[in-house]
């Protein structure tokens, strides 16, 4: 049995309180509070619009660059934040790990779930901006929940890998910051996936966020048809990431208290 779902279910209340603790404490004692969830993508959007949209004149599939990049930035911000949050979740809770038994998996998973709140708030911003530019979503929005699940699986899978590594090798923490930033260029955040030559298209889609981001654009902005090929490849790689991540996490789990 590679994951004890029954046990995870027994600890569902802990899971809930951890999610809630991280939401409640993240913006405690800050003036802007939950506003920070919006500020991060908005400022990136402004900078990208000026540099990539106006100066470099990168194609945005015929929609205003600001809304083009924001629809990508919101899922990307979720992805990168939940990666760093889950990678830190064990390291920041070593006292809990070494003093109490509970299924360790709840720590990175709760981090991935907690970040959804930021995501939904930022999504409101996307809809606001779409209204401003008078862009109506296509009927493909019904697939958004699917894309969100795909995005969460990718984050949880990679998060599980990083978490299990980070507890033993603190290098992960140092690397996270800039690697995540660089990785952004491996996803169509500032440019459209249509810029990628067809030959590399499917290799490119191995990054699950490619399918997610292009899917968001297709569903919300209707700039092109739903890229099911990208989403399909991305989903396959997300499943592999998730399963392997959980397995790796499980195999390391019993050592966490010793190496922490």
């Amino acid at each position: 049995m590679f994951i004890d779902f029954r046990e995870l279910y027994q600890y569902r209340d802990l899971f809930r309180f951890l999610v809630w603790r991280s939401i409640k404490t993240r913006y405690a004692q800050s003036v802007i509070g939950i506003g920070w969830a919006v500020i991060q993508p908005v400022f990136s959007m402004i900078v990208f619009t000026i540099i990539f949209g106006n100066l470099a004149k990168i194609s945005s599939d015929g929609v205003p660059y600001a809304v083009f990049t924001l629809t990508a930035l919101v899922p990307w911000t979720y992805f990168s934040n939940s990666l760093s949050e889950s990678a830190g979740s064990l390291v920041n809770n070593t006292s809990m790990i070494s003093k109490v038994y509970f299924p360790r998996l709840v720590l990175p998973l709760s981090a991935v779930i907690a970040k959804l709140l930021d995501f939904f708030i930022a999504m409101l911003l996307v809809f606001g901006l779409m209204a401003y530019f008078r862009i109506a979503p296509t009927w493909n929005v019904v697939f958004l929940p699917l894309l969100v699940v795909l995005m969460m699986s990718a984050a949880a899978g990679l998060g599980a890998w990083l978490t299990a590594l980070a507890i033993q090798y603190r290098d992960v923490k140092h690397a996270m910051g800039f690697v995540v930033q660089l990785l952004m260029y491996a996803a169509p955040v500032v440019y459209p996936a249509s810029l990628i030559p067809d030959r590399y298209r499917l290799v490119y889609a191995l990054n699950p966020m490619v399918g997610v981001i292009e899917g968001f654009r297709a569903a919300l902005l209707g700039s092109r048809a739903m890229p099911w090929d990208l989403i399909g490849v991305g989903a396959a790689s997300a499943v592999v990431l998730l399963l392997s991540g959980l397995m790796y996490f499980r195999s390391r789990e019993r050592l966490f208290a010793d190496v922490a």
């Binding site: 603790r21 404490t25 405690a28």
Partner: peptide
Amino acid sequence: TGFHPELTGRENIYMNGTIL
């Protein structure tokens, strides 16, 4: 274990209790 300084006493009771 699991007490968080930003949470209130009530919240920490629930947090700590579920961890245990």
